[in-house]
Design a protein around this nucleic acid. Structure first.
Lengths: 137, 137
DNA sequence: CCGGATCCGTTTCGATACTG
DNA sequence: CAGTATCGAAACGGATCCGG
C-alpha cells in the first residue's frame, strides 16, 4: 500500500527511516539537539539514558555521514566542538512530536506539560517554527 | 523543554517510545500490520527485510506484552494464529506517516505514490481513518 | 579539561537447523 | 505453520588512555 509493491527495486519508505534512525541512541541525540539545546559531546554524555563514550562517538559519526547533524568549531573557543541539526535533521521535528504525543497518551510516567501537548496537536506549524527558532540560539 | 526537567522522576516522553519501539524490527512489524495487511507469523517472515525466526518470535512477544499488538486464533482455522494492532498500536499511524513523509523527502530510492503523500500531508484525519478501516478487513 | 579512541568482558543479534 | 535451540558474529557498556 504505502510502498509501491510493483516496483521491486524501490524500498519501503519506513525502511529508510529505520536504517538511519532505528537504533536506541540516534533519535535520543536528535532529541537532545532539538528539544534540550545540547550541542557538545560532553552534554550528550550527561543525558539520563547514559550512552557510552564509544557508542556516542560512533552515532555522531553516522548521523553526520547521513547529513542529519553537522559538526563545527565554536568560533569563540577553538577547542570546543559544536554539533547542530541540518535541515534534514530539523525535519524530524514532526516525527519526534508524534513520539511525544503517543508517549503522553500511553505512558503514565511521562510528564509533558499539557499546554505543550495542546500546541503540538492543534498548532503544529507554530510549534515547529518555535523549535527551529530555539535551535538558532 | 519537552520533558519537565524539574521532576527528576519523570521520563522524557521520547524515551518511552524508544523503549517500546526503538529497535530495528518492532516498527517494521507494526508497518506490516498497518499498511500491508499482514497478520500471521509466516507473512511477517516474507517481508523483504528478512527478519530471523527467533527475532520475530521475540518481538511479537514483546509487542504483545506492551499492548501494541494482540494475538488471536483464526476462528475458521484453529491452528492459525492471527496478530492485529490494538488501539495503542493503531495510534502509531501518525508516527509512521511522518516516517514515510520524511523518507520521501530525503531518500531518492523510496517510491511512494505522490497522491498518497499528498493525502498524508493535507488530509491527515482522512488518511488515518482509511488505515483504520483497512485494518478491519 | 574536552573529545574522542582503544581494549575487553558481557549481552544481544542473526542465520540455520530443528521441533510440536 | 509457528515457533525453539544452538552457536558464531556483532554490538554494547565500562574503564581507561591519549592528543590538543
Amino acid at each position: 500500500m504505502v510502498c509501491d509493491e510493483k516496483k521491486r527495486r524501490s524500498k519501503c519508505p519506513v525502511t529508510f527511516a529505520l536504517d538511519q534512525l532505528g537504533d536506541k541512541w540516534s533519535l535520543l541525540i536528535v532529541r537532545d539537539l532539538m528539544f534540550h539545546g545540547k550541542r557538545t559531546y560532553g552534554e550528550f554524555l550527561e543525558s539520563d539514558e547514559g550512552i557510552a563514550t564509544n557508542v556516542l562517538a560512533d552515532r555522531l559519526k553516522r548521523l553526520e555521514a547521513e547529513g542529519i547533524i553537522e559538526k563545527t568549531r565554536d568560533p569563540e573557543n577553538r577547542r570546543r566542538v559544536l554539533y547542530s541539526l541540518t535541515d534534514k535533521g530539523f525535519d524530524l521535528t514532526p516525527l519526534l512530536m508524534e513520539m511525544v504525543l503517543w508517549s503522553a497518551k500511553y505512558d503514565a510516567d511521562t510528564a509533558t506539560p499539557k499546554a505543550m501537548l495542546d500546541r503540538m496537536e492543534n498548532d503544529r506549524a507554530a510549534f515547529i517554527q518555535e523549535v527551529r527558532e530555539g535551535m538558532k540560539i
